[in-house]
Nucleic acid binder design. Structure first.
Lengths: 255, 255
DNA sequence: TTCCTGTAATGGTACTACCATAGTCGCCGC
DNA sequence: GCGGCGACTATGGTAGTACCATTACAGGAA
């Protein structure tokens, strides 16, 4: 009983935070490795000298932080999870939903990230990955040429291409930020796929971008990425332009 | 009793998630505005038809998401909070701590963000902000010229300058990502301030950067930003060159 | 062997009681 | 009349118990 970590007794008034932090520290400190099972709630209750409610709330925090995963039944319990970008992405997503971010600000942010990723992808991506990206973009064109458009599949394909691109940067931070953006910002992006005109331009632009990445033409690839966001700006302006005209920006894309 | 929002009765087995999601939806839907007080735990317990423990765990989730703030005592309760970047930043910070990110990847990520912010700051920042940034950088130089160096204050000043710069982009997303980076990655950055040689170079570089931003010289400013990260890379290499332990290649991302 | 059932461990929920805290309000003394 | 102090009360925080639901596992039956 007393041979194990022996957590400190929690002090009243902030017992939940106390317990939560101690367990988190133990996980971070390597006392529990991914896949390990924490003691059962009833045992932690004894080790910390608290009620079971405190333990449950503390575990709820850790679960919310995506540090542990809880299973029911015999041999169940709280298991330490592998670190994942999903939770951090969800947090940004929540933030984006709460604050009403100006679409233009989101576009600026995303465009800068996208261009950096593109540069890195050209430099770091393997030939295989580049070919794969190009093939997928060609499949994308076939997808929107079908009779009955599957909008869900189209959105998923767009996300897939972006994720593919982000992974080619070989930098998990960009993969994370791309996921976060897709979670919190996707609705704007899909505007491009709603109308036939923009849909064709966008998909063709994906192909152009992928091709230049494959060919190692950084500047051309960046140019196409810029064109993507020019399209997006114009598309969104058109949709909003029905009611508001005065603040339409002068990005002017002539095709 | 039935005149109010009347949450749906929670279904057993996942009552906590049920309650949490319903309350979150109510907040998102504008049923509760920032500053509003949610019903007391004992009242929610009745409205949802659950035990109080379920309500407490659900509120714990919302608190963890930074959606509500809980006060004790009479007239206490759960109050809806204003959306803030702090929580999302903390999530990224946690992610960075869990995954041992390669230092070079962090530098690449941060450098790209920093350069984008710099460009936006030149374009969007007001003259007043630019002057303020420049003055603060000059004060920074005075700070490191003193007899007894206050390392905490130096670190704080560096953070302050970065935050100032991020705000000049007029884009909350960059402010957020800068906060997140500073939370999860700051101790690493401070390597530049540990040794006198790099400290002087870095601070002088801050002044150069701020001056060029003030003068609207985008390319020069970007050049100085690039120099900052050249310094950081060299500094890190030197430090690892001495006491590299081949397994301690992980930067010290601890808190 | 295979399948089924009982059993035990564990999380999920309900309920109660009590403590700690912090506003509120009214009583008391001046 | 005024000010301060103390009781009151609503509310979150914690402890403890009991019971239900789920799941893995062992041991027996076919």
């Amino acid at each position: 009983m007393s041979d194990k970590p022996v957590f400190k007794q929690a002090q009243p008034g902030r017992a939940v935070e106390d317990v939560s932090l101690q367990i988190e520290a133990a996980i971070m400190g390597g006392m529990f490795l991914p896949g390990d099972k924490l003691p059962s709630e009833r045992e932690l209750q004894v080790q910390f000298g608290t009620g079971r409610g405190v333990i449950r709330e503390a575990l709820r925090i850790l679960k919310q932080k995506d540090l542990v995963e809880v299973k029911k039944g015999s041999r169940g319990g709280a298991f330490v999870k592998e670190a994942d970008v999903a939770n951090a992405s969800a947090s940004l997503s929540l933030f984006l939903k709460q604050k009403k971010i100006d679409p233009e600000q989101l576009i600026v942010f995303r465009e800068s990230i996208d261009k950096t990723i593109t540069m890195l992808a050209v430099a770091q991506g393997s030939a295989e990955e580049k070919n794969r990206l190009y093939e997928k973009s060609l499949e994308f064109k076939a997808l929107i040429s079908e009779e009955n458009l599957n909008m869900d599949l189209i959105g998923e394909t767009d996300r897939m291409l972006n994720t593919l691109l982000a992974k080619m940067s070989k930098n998990p931070l960009f993969v994370w930020i791309m996921q976060a953006i897709q979670l919190g910002f996707s609705s704007y992006d899909y505007a491009l796929y709603e109308e036939d005109h923009y849909r064709r331009l966008t998909v063709n632009n994906w192909i152009d971008t992928a091709r230049e990445i494959k060919n190692g033409e950084i500047m051309k690839a960046l140019s196409y990425v810029g064109y993507h966001y020019s399209l997006l700006r114009k598309c969104i302006n058109e949709k909003n332009g029905e009611s508001i005209d005065k603040e339409t920006r002068c990005l002017t894309i002539e095709e």
